[in-house]
Amino acid sequence: MQETRALLESSKYFYIIISDMNGNYSYVNQHYADEFAYIHENFVGEPYYITMHEDDRKTCEEVSLKCFANPGQLFPAVIRKHDGKGGYLYTQWEYQAMFDEENMPQGIFCLGYNITQFVADRQNLEGAIDKIEKTATLLTQISFQQSHLIRAPLTNILSLSAILEKRSDDEQLRKICLMIMESATKLDLTVREIVENIGHNQAES
């Protein structure tokens, strides 16, 4: 940990913080100090939770307990930090328990970085996927309705018109029947094309 701390002391991307057994900051690297300077000008001695969303304190406590129960292991945590504008930054961390030479617990070493853009991109992607799924469901419903609920009555109209046209002696009525059959046939063809296009688009996606 000392090597990591020395290596990343001046990092522009990674945060390093160390909290003592009282839950107060005992060390922060410059990047962390600069990033959250609007919260406090000197974090050392301040409670670890002053930068974070209230609900994420429980996450920190749970991960810290895992660290002390499993010395030498790293445990991840995503923590929301105040952004100074009424919102939050998302940060990804790895925690590891610190022990002295006599194996007594000394605190928690935390290495983290900002994942706000990643979280935003993922949320946008999930939103797009959800929209696509809803659209696909709607298209399936439309396809079913057009294929079954519309074409079935159209078929009946075609059949009844054909029967009426053949049985009628009234020339004017027969012409009307033929016009109905022609219009119904065109409508049936249009519905068929719509259903086929929906099926084709869903297969491509």
Results as ranks from 00 to 15, higher is better:
residue 85 K to W: 07
residue 73 Q to A: 13
residue 164 L to K: 07
residue 128 A to W: 09
residue 121 D to I: 01
residue 77 A to Y: 02
residue 148 H to W: 08
residue 130 D to I: 03
residue 76 P to I: 05
residue 179 M to K: 12
residue 111 L to D: 07
residue 158 L to G: 11
residue 99 F to K: 04
residue 144 F to A: 10
residue 191 V to C: 03
residue 196 E to R: 04
residue 124 N to F: 03
residue 145 Q to M: 12
residue 131 K to M: 04
residue 188 D to A: 08
residue 108 I to G: 01
residue 152 A to E: 14
residue 143 S to I: 04
residue 94 E to A: 11
residue 110 C to T: 04
residue 154 L to F: 05
residue 106 Q to L: 14
residue 139 L to C: 06
residue 186 K to V: 08
residue 154 L to W: 03
residue 162 A to K: 15
residue 108 I to W: 00
residue 73 Q to K: 15
residue 169 D to V: 08
residue 181 M to I: 00
residue 144 F to K: 05
residue 156 N to T: 15
residue 84 G to Q: 11
residue 172 Q to P: 01
residue 195 V to H: 02
residue 142 I to Y: 01
residue 158 L to N: 13
residue 129 I to A: 06
residue 154 L to S: 05
residue 195 V to L: 00
residue 191 V to I: 12
residue 106 Q to Y: 04
residue 137 T to S: 11
residue 139 L to F: 03
residue 125 L to F: 09
residue 167 R to Y: 14
residue 82 H to E: 10
residue 77 A to D: 05
residue 72 G to P: 03
residue 140 T to H: 07
residue 168 S to P: 04
residue 131 K to S: 09
residue 92 Q to K: 11
residue 193 E to W: 00
residue 180 I to V: 12
residue 166 K to Y: 09
residue 150 I to Q: 06
residue 158 L to F: 15
residue 198 I to Y: 09
residue 173 L to A: 13
residue 143 S to K: 03
residue 128 A to R: 15
residue 114 N to V: 04
residue 171 E to W: 06
residue 185 T to P: 06
residue 187 L to R: 14
residue 96 Q to N: 08
residue 92 Q to Y: 12
residue 136 A to V: 14
residue 103 N to Y: 10
residue 140 T to G: 07
residue 179 M to H: 13
residue 158 L to D: 10
residue 133 E to F: 03
residue 198 I to S: 05
residue 133 E to H: 10
residue 166 K to W: 03
residue 107 G to H: 00
residue 173 L to W: 06
